[in-house]
Simulated assay, not measured.
Amino acid sequence: YSLFKNLMSGKSKESLDIFNELYSSGADPGVIIQDLLDVVHWLTRVHVTPEVVNEPGVSEIDKNMGMELAKELNTAELSKTWQILLKGYQEVQNHDMPNVIAEMVLIRLIYASDLPTAEELVKDLLKKNHDSKIDNDESKEEKGSDSDNTIKEQYHKTEKVPSKGINTDTVIEMKNVDNLLKDPNSKVQENNIKIEKKDENIVLSSFKDVANFFLKKKEILLFNHLFSHVRLVHFQKGKIELNPTEDLPKDFGSKIGTMLSEWTNQRWIVSFSKTKGEISLEEQNERDKKETVKKMMQNKRVKEILKVFPEATIEAIKEEGDKDE
């Protein structure tokens, strides 16, 4: 019990002195570890069922030390000690220098006694999370108060501005500030009110207009699909029916419809059909190019040039004012 008490108290020098004294007197290191395991087992029984100390055959020292140490140690500490000693006992049995291994096991146990138990770690973690949540809530309240004050200042400033010369954007901003003051649940980010505007004056009167609008919005991949990989079956405002010529992404139709609806503030539905429909926009472009080249070949000046350069061909046709690439 003396060795065990010193180990549990974290007294390394006293513990190792007792162990070396026992070892020098002929005690087997494995037996010493085994005796410590018996002590832990006894204390655990006393801790769980205190009446066990009154059973017949229990010595007076086991009874007194059992009751004393069981009060000082909880079940978690006893369980941790049991695991360290049990693993150490197996190491001692399988090593050529059992005394060295036994010393290392005892040192491990001494320093483990200063470590918090799993229960203490959980409690500490929960406490930190709780404190952190309180700090965050207080921080949010302070930020919310600062935001309200800023909004009120902006509102009072806008009230002092004379009505003459106020543009539409300023009026919209003042109305939004007023709405925010009336609604305490409104959130203000970075003390700025951002107003999103839909694209105005959008006229999509043909499928080609739709494809070009995606190009304008820099949705290059979707434009490429619209331009080269689908044929138009039916088009009307708010509804497009297509015949795919190649495999398209599964969400292609819904994505096109959603984007058009957001950009135009009008619902658009895109569906697919097995009907062949018109040729693709790319094919139309090639056809129109060939027809234009054919007409150009009939031009008087072009004919004169071709007489001088008979092997010349028309590679591209540009509108007046187009920049060279």
Score class of each variant (00 low, 15 high):
190 E>T: 14
190 E>H: 10
190 E>A: 15
190 E>R: 13
191 N>D: 11
191 N>C: 09
191 N>K: 15
191 N>F: 11
192 N>V: 15
193 I>W: 14
193 I>Y: 15
195 I>T: 15
197 K>R: 15
199 D>S: 07
200 E>P: 10
201 N>S: 09
201 N>R: 14
201 N>H: 12
202 I>E: 00
202 I>M: 05
203 V>R: 12
204 L>G: 05
205 S>L: 10
209 D>R: 04
209 D>I: 03
210 V>R: 00
211 A>N: 08
211 A>G: 09
213 F>Q: 09
215 L>R: 15
216 K>N: 14
216 K>V: 11
218 K>E: 14
219 E>G: 03
223 F>K: 13
224 N>L: 01
224 N>P: 03
225 H>Y: 15
226 L>G: 02
226 L>C: 01
228 S>T: 12
231 R>A: 08
231 R>H: 04
231 R>G: 03
233 V>Y: 00
233 V>N: 04
234 H>Y: 14
235 F>E: 03
235 F>V: 04
236 Q>L: 05
237 K>T: 06
238 G>R: 04
238 G>W: 05
238 G>S: 10
239 K>L: 13
240 I>W: 07
241 E>L: 15
241 E>Q: 12
242 L>R: 00
242 L>E: 00
242 L>G: 02
243 N>H: 04
245 T>Y: 02
247 D>F: 12
247 D>A: 14
247 D>Y: 12
248 L>K: 02
249 P>R: 06
250 K>I: 12
251 D>V: 13
251 D>W: 08
251 D>Q: 12
252 F>E: 02
252 F>W: 12
253 G>R: 06
253 G>W: 08
254 S>T: 13
255 K>F: 14
255 K>M: 14
256 I>N: 04
258 T>L: 15
258 T>V: 08
260 L>H: 02
261 S>N: 01
261 S>L: 02
262 E>W: 01
262 E>S: 09
263 W>Y: 02
263 W>F: 01
264 T>K: 02
264 T>Y: 06
265 N>Y: 03
267 R>W: 08
267 R>C: 10
268 W>N: 06
269 I>F: 08
270 V>C: 07
270 V>D: 00
271 S>V: 06
271 S>H: 09
272 F>T: 11
272 F>H: 04
272 F>R: 07
272 F>G: 05
273 S>F: 08
274 K>F: 07
275 T>D: 10
275 T>S: 07
